[in-house]
Design a protein around this nucleic acid. Sequence first.
DNA 1: CTTACTCGATAGTTTCACTATCTATATTGG
DNA 2: CCAATATAGATAGTGAAACTATCGAGTAAG
Lengths: 209, 209
Amino acid sequence: MRISELSAESGVPVATIKYYLREDLLPEGARTSATQATYGEPHIERLRVIRALIEAGVSVAETRRVLAALDDPPTSPHDLLGAAHAAVLPATGEALDTAAAEALAVRLGWQPGMCDDQILAGVARALQGVQRAGFEIPDAVMSAYLESVRTLARAEIANVPTDSPEAAVRYVVLGSVLIEPLLLALRRVAEQVASAERFGDPAAADPEP
Amino acid sequence: MRISELSAESGVPVATIKYYLREDLLPEGARTSATQATYGEPHIERLRVIRALIEAGVSVAETRRVLAALDDPPTSPHDLLGAAHAAVLPATGEALDTAAAEALAVRLGWQPGMCDDQILAGVARALQGVQRAGFEIPDAVMSAYLESVRTLARAEIANVPTDSPEAAVRYVVLGSVLIEPLLLALRRVAEQVASAERFGDPAAADPEP
DNA sequence: CTTACTCGATAGTTTCACTATCTATATTGG
DNA sequence: CCAATATAGATAGTGAAACTATCGAGTAAG
């Protein structure tokens, strides 16, 4: 398959494919001469993953790191998850108050050394943003967050496929990143439903013409 | 308070404050002459909210809409939530398969007409991204997502403060937007914990020197 | 009255994700 | 075999987004 066919097949413009090649998101095709190369099915699949990540809001640099984790997975599934997470986390710039973040992590069953500091720093950064806006999270709500997130993570990890390493890698790496927009979108729907339940919006009743 | 003091107080550069004034994120100060205005405590608070939203990844245009919802809230709490959600949702460009999204929404207790199509379109878009990457969500995991998200939303809505309308507005509008990074960060920690539990990473055991 | 500050307008900067152009080479249809 | 088309790789340009800097004219304070 030549680059123009790859483009037609995937819906991604040739110029963009070349850009992804330059950025090391997509591997080179098999060279047939100095100015010619051919591409195959793996390239199409890879392009699908790239587009999904980028459209999910992952930057090109982060996408490159996610793909690197896919291509060159650490041996243990646990390290794999760490690599996937690290790929989408910004390097910590400013100093953060990690005490509050650790307190929450402990309520999730976390123990010191259990994961990369970056992951905890993400919690600290998010808390800082919430707090700097002068927003207070009621205890009951925070408890619900922790409970929900633990349930959800347990189900995810319990379903890591063990049959093939490749499947496990795909599941862990893509699952941790691609699911994020879905969770946020589902939360919005659930909030609307709960709000309709509580505040009994008349518009929720089926309107007859 | 003059603009330079507001800048010193809030840590936001004068040029940036002027930019926010131009972009209608921050209201004008009280004019004392043609080239002078003074700012007060509300401006500092507003700047804190703006910075929190923008650092949480909300764009300037979305931030403007969120602030508009804060300033000029719909009368019913339910519509308020809709306004907050609509503020951070992109206008749908391409056609989406909403059937799958509706099926999920129904499992959350959703009924036709219960919320803006945009919110459902967000689910459809997220599903499409997941699916185009060739990623399969196991049924058990999807069930856990729905269950978790319902629990979490119920707790959030149950805790909307009813004493003052202002407090309710703040809670709903900021809560739906600012909490997102926190939830994603907590999910990562919970995944790490669940992963350590399942795969028994030796590094999780406390290392003695 | 001079020095510093302010407003408002305008223009410049940086980053990001593409997108377009160009040259030398390769392939392909007639 | 040769002209039309396509390709790789390099380089430069684009447009959006979020600032950042500069400027001129008008205060304000010591």
